[in-house]
Computed example of a mutant assay.
Amino acid sequence: MKTLFDPVQAGSLQLPNRIVMAPLTRNRAPGAIPNDLMATYYAQRASAGLLITEATAISAQGQGYADVPGLYGTEQLDGWKRVTDAVHTQGGRIVVQLWHVGRVSHVDLQPDGQLPVAPSAIAAKTKTFLIKDGVGSFAPTSMPRALDSEEIPGIVQDFRHAARHAITTCGFDGVEIHGANGYLIDQFLKTGANHRKDDYGGSIKNRARLLLEVVRAIVGEIGGDRTAIRLSPVTPANDIIDADPQPLFDYVVRELAPLGLAYIHIIEGATGGPRVLEDRPFDYRELEKTYRDAGGKAAWMVNNNYDKPLAEHAIANGADLVAFGKPFISNPDLVERLRANAPLNEPDKSTFYGGGAKGYTDYPALGAT
């Protein structure tokens, strides 16, 4: 029987175990530039089967939070190269999560104070993170403007360019497209945010068009075996909802099946919250079956509030990979702790967003005093 600690292949990624570090926004990249502290943070966690970076903006327009990294400027690319070198020196594997936040942003974070963009001019009833005079705080998102159809190909190209630079310049082992949690791709997918009347709105096929254009562009640029995507069918994160998610996501995975992706990363339930939502039922087994029946071969990654027993059960019942989020914040050696059934460090929640080494790179490894 498969275990968490067995090796697995995900596209071109040869992973020594099935424990994945989920993407975790930490707001420690002033100027959107990855730095040496971040290199230390990721290198400390290199024993994970796979590291997925914090969400990383594909353009200045794609930024939605203060001090999150980007992947579109020379200094950003150089910064990420230092991170990947540090991880590879420790024997790790790392992919970058490519991100456009869409409407989950604020005018203070947008170029020239412009409005954030979205499929439709509908504000997200959520908050973003701003830093002013060195002090971080959460603020309501700004009202977005609807993207013109002529602008959308440019966003697809931003994703493609970021993916190319991720591999050729930064040295990442692959990329994960952020199609989840109420950000731009998810906004196009779901009826609560997408009221468009053109080829990107209305039917399931139209609402999935942007996602598929992005994935196909990246696959064409770097290959499907180094491309992955994250989806969250029913999460309410960032004020997102769809009227009928099962047929929507069944359609999406059927269309993804022929593309030869490395893995598909599924958030089950509410991101960081309940794994089952009574008001938003969803059959994840059906979703994977739909994908496999369509010929999909990607590794299947599950995520949301997994502990060791739940993760072992998931692996025994067909999942290929399990992503852990918050446990990796305070346990850089999480793989070793899970293997040894050792206690876990508790995270300092006050240090989650912004700051320096405290609560970031100073958690003790197993056996440290």
Rank of each mutant, 00 (worst) to 15 (best):
P7E: 13
D250M: 09
A22D: 06
D333Y: 14
T89P: 12
V83F: 00
L259A: 10
P236F: 06
D307N: 09
D36V: 11
I33Y: 03
A118T: 00
V96S: 06
V104N: 13
A48D: 05
T168H: 10
I58K: 11
G182C: 06
F324I: 04
R18N: 01
I222S: 12
T361N: 02
Q114D: 10
P30N: 08
A357Y: 10
Y306R: 01
I241V: 14
K358A: 12
V335A: 01
R18E: 14
Q44G: 03
P347S: 12
G220L: 05
D242Y: 11
G220K: 14
A32F: 15
V101W: 00
T53C: 02
Q110S: 01
A118W: 11
V101T: 00
M301K: 13
A319T: 09
I204F: 03
K81N: 14
Q63F: 06
G355P: 03
E213V: 00
D244K: 06
S350K: 10
M1L: 15
T3S: 07
Y306K: 04
D225S: 11
V101A: 00
Y263P: 13
L344V: 05
A163E: 03
A368E: 07
V87E: 07
C170K: 07
Y363N: 12
W300A: 05
K81D: 13
T369P: 15
V68K: 02
A262H: 10
P245Y: 04
W300T: 05
A48N: 04
Q114M: 11
E151Y: 14
W80R: 13
R196L: 11
I167E: 09
A262K: 05
T191Y: 09
P16W: 11
L4Y: 04
F328R: 00
A121R: 02
G79A: 02
L212Q: 14
L130T: 00
S350D: 12
D186Q: 08
V101Y: 00
V87A: 04
D133A: 12
T3M: 14
I229F: 15
A342Y: 10
A340K: 09
D158G: 12
I218Y: 15
K125P: 13
K326M: 07
P16N: 14
D283P: 06
S203T: 05
L259M: 11
T361W: 02
L4H: 01
G154W: 14
E151A: 07
A118Q: 02
D6N: 06
A118K: 00
Q114I: 06
Y360C: 06
I266K: 01
H106F: 08
M1N: 11
T168W: 11
P347E: 13
P347K: 06
A48E: 01
D283N: 02
R285V: 08
E268Y: 05
V156R: 02
G73L: 12
H265Y: 09
L13Y: 02
R164A: 11
M143G: 01
T74C: 10
